[in-house]
Amino acid sequence: MPELSPPAPAALAREALRAAILRGEYLPGERLVEAQLCERFAASRFTVRAALQELAGDGLVEMRRNKGAHVRKVSIEEAIEISEVRMVLEGLVAARAAVRVSDGQASELDEVALLMRRAVGAGEFHRYSDLNHRLHALIREIAGHRTADGIIATLRGQLVRHQFMLSLHPGRPQTSLPQHERIVEAIRRRDPKAAEAAMREHIASVIDHLRTLDEVLP
């Protein structure tokens, strides 16, 4: 079997910058200064520019004429539209996960759901947000639908700021916890229709909460 080539420098810079944006190290609307990115990621200007162009294609970065690159802001209206697309795709993924799940993976889902319940009980909502992300990622991993996974990852990246704020919204974790538990239970029962319905119900609830936000997040 031939050896795999190492990732290209542009790909490394792109993924490192993507991760930094998703972690909130660069805020929506913030300018991404090429010289600073070159220094941070030990990359050439050509490499950084290529990475910025690719992230612009993913909807994470906005290229402004004569003003350089900025982290793209997403309005509440656009966040709702993106979530509507996510609802369809993540419903499909949940159904597929219910068909493909192994006993070991079902136990792992149970473990994450239990940790989520404990986080809510302890008022650890930042941890709950991290576990929420982990659960959705595990479901996508079980489903093994590479096309849907790639699209969902891009869509979720555009919503990262909104998702973080929603996780801290009063009462939101208590609302979403039983929704996640229903998703896990349906996948464990190997019931694709119930898994899809539970996932779509969960994303619909996210959309309802987005509508309660009165202004575009900074």
Rank of each mutant, 00 (worst) to 15 (best):
I76M: 10
V85A: 09
I142Q: 06
T154Y: 14
F41I: 10
V85Q: 13
I207E: 06
R65G: 02
L213I: 11
S5E: 08
V93L: 08
R190D: 04
L166I: 10
R40L: 07
R182Q: 15
T212Q: 14
G68K: 07
L109G: 00
R100V: 09
R23I: 01
L60R: 06
Q53P: 00
L22T: 05
D110Y: 00
T154R: 15
A51K: 02
A148M: 13
E201H: 13
L52P: 01
G68A: 05
S205V: 13
R134L: 15
Q53H: 05
S5T: 02
E141F: 11
R200G: 12
T212H: 12
G29R: 04
A50P: 02
V33A: 06
V184Y: 04
R134D: 09
L37D: 12
R64F: 00
V33W: 05
G59I: 09
A95F: 08
A197L: 14
Q36E: 14
I139E: 02
E25W: 03
V99M: 10
H209L: 15
T47V: 11
P7G: 00
S5Y: 05
Q158I: 03
D103L: 01
L210I: 03
T154A: 14
V160P: 05
L217P: 05
G150S: 07
N132H: 15
N66I: 11
P178Q: 10
Q158N: 06
A8R: 12
A198T: 11
I21G: 01
E15N: 06
R64G: 00
R100C: 03
I151F: 13
R65Y: 06
A98W: 00
S44K: 02
A20M: 03
S176T: 13
L210Q: 04
L32F: 01
P28N: 01
V206D: 10
A204I: 06
I76P: 00
R182D: 06
N66V: 10
A19E: 09
A10E: 10
A198C: 08
H70Q: 10
A35M: 08
R72D: 03
A95N: 04
L89D: 05
A16V: 01
Q163K: 14
E141R: 09
A16Y: 05
R65C: 00
P218D: 03
R172M: 14
P28W: 14
A11E: 12
A143D: 09
L32T: 08
E77M: 04
P192L: 15
